[in-house]
Design a protein around this nucleic acid. Structure first.
Length: 423
DNA sequence: GAATATGATTGCCC
DNA sequence: GGGCAATCATATTC
């Protein structure tokens, strides 16, 4: 049985007989019939239904005209009433479908992420958390700010695109909703449409559009993730430390050659001085120790150079201290200075003591100064040098190599032992 | 463009 | 968790 026949049956058998009045209005007598003729009435209704069923096959103008004709048709109120009745019967199935969907967890995740990244929600300097976290993990302050601003600029771009698209979608959604509501309102003249139905239709439209919005949010999240990974990758890029930073680190390393293991405080101090992070200082010392140990000969020249520097600095400091003590106090001063570093250590103290003992600095003696720290004189400063030349390295490392190697200071007795970190 | 230097990462050990 | 050793990846030098 097709729809038309079903409606016909419904109208003929169920409803029309009892609905001569619609909404209190008396039905006008059927056109061309006396109103008591059942066959004529059926024919009339069949005619209306036929027109309704074929209305979509016609052109817009024709359909418009036909619609107007139907609206003015004498049987229209009766038909409307029947449709109301049918609707009443089918209403239950609609009601069942009206339950609200629970919030989509994926959508919530996307919303949260966009909010956290500063893409959605109020502007807050876009992804400052991510940028700051990455910045904290990196060293070079100047370069950071460049990359940081670059990251933020790109994030702002994403944010703008996202908001523009979102607005477009919302506008399109509103326009479409208005359009559909107008259509429904117009249709409500010929068929019963409850406000709830309109509401439901609006809900369906909104759901459709929100699924499109979800795609937009997903794409935006992906873009942010890509940007972020690129930003972090850029940070992974190796950049040489500044000459000054390397100088400072080398100075510390060679002046503590006997025990090149800076304490936490020393690392922090060095990091501050070199404008790098503590972990970079740790990396640097780790690399330096290994590379030095692997090829002492190669580093000998460098060691001499820094030892000379340290010696000169220490000599200056010691001379100043002596002068000071002679001028100010008859007692031996406890000079806090131990070379160019204000760090708490005495690693290079004996260099200054050597200077104090009258060993004037000469280029040729510098090597000996270094060796005096690391062990007996090295036969040759080239490839001939092995770890055997350094007692601290003789047993496979400074420490063998977990605990700091103790150094017998020339200023102390053979039995006295001190570690760089102990001070 | 190859060789070398160097900062970072990873896996393991203690 | 700190350090070592190997390795990677990039920068610099020649």
């Amino acid at each position: 049985m097709d729809d038309q026949a079903r409606i016909m049956q419904s109208i003929g058998g169920v409803s029309l007989a009892g609905h001569s009045v619609q909404g209190g209005m008396p039905l006008p007598p059927p056109h061309g019939h006396d109103g008591t003729d059942g066959d004529g009435r059926k024919q009339d209704i069949g005619d209306i239904l036929h027109q309704i069923m074929t209305i979509t096959d016609q052109s817009l103008d024709e359909a418009q005209a036909k619609k107007h004709g139907l609206n003015c048709h004498r049987m229209k109120p009766a038909l409307f009433s029947v449709l109301c009745e049918i609707k009443e019967k089918t209403g239950l199935s609609i009601r069942g479908a009206q339950e609200e969907d629970p919030p989509d967890p994926q959508l919530m995740r996307l919303d949260n992420m966009l909010l956290a990244e500063g893409v959605a929600g109020p502007e807050k300097g876009g992804g400052s958390a991510a940028a700051a976290a990455a910045a904290a993990a990196s060293g070079g302050a100047a370069d950071n700010s460049i990359e940081h601003s670059d990251y933020r600029a790109k994030l702002t771009q994403i944010r703008q695109i996202y908001h523009t698209e979102l607005e477009k979608y919302e506008q399109a959604c509103n326009e479409f909703t208005t359009h559909v509501m107008n259509l429904l309102r117009e249709q409500s003249r010929t068929r019963p449409i409850s406000p709830k139905e309109i509401e439901r239709m609006v809900g369906i439209i909104h759901r459709k559009f929100s699924s499109i919005q979800m795609q937009l949010k997903q794409s935006t999240c992906e873009a942010v993730m890509i940007l972020r990974s690129r930003f972090l990758d850029a940070r992974r890029k190796r950049r040489n430390f500044s000459k000054q930073a390397t100088e400072i680190l080398n100075e510390y390393f060679y002046s503590h050659l006997s025990n090149p293991y800076p304490s936490e405080e020393a690392k922090e101090e060095l990091a501050k001085k070199c404008s790098i992070t503590v972990s970079q200082v740790s990396n640097w010392f780790g690399n330096k120790r290994i590379r030095y140990k692997k090829n002492i000969g190669k580093f000998q020249e460098e060691a001499n150079l820094y030892a000379a520097k340290t010696a000169v600095n220490a000599a200056h400091a010691a001379a100043a201290a002596v002068q000071n003590s002679q001028a100010n106090s008859p007692t031996t001063p406890n000079s806090g200075s131990s070379g160019s570093f204000s760090l708490p250590n005495t690693g290079d103290m004996f260099l200054s003591m050597q200077s104090l003992n009258g060993e004037s600095y000469q280029g040729a003696q510098v090597g000996a100064n270094v060796q005096s720290q690391v062990g007996p004189p090295i036969r040759d400063s080239s490839s001939d040098v092995t770890t055997e030349s350094c007692p601290c390295l003789a047993n496979g490392g400074w420490q063998g190599a977990r605990t700091p190697c103790s150094v017998i200071s020339p200023t102390e007795g053979p039995g006295s032992v001190h570690s760089d970190t102990s001070n």
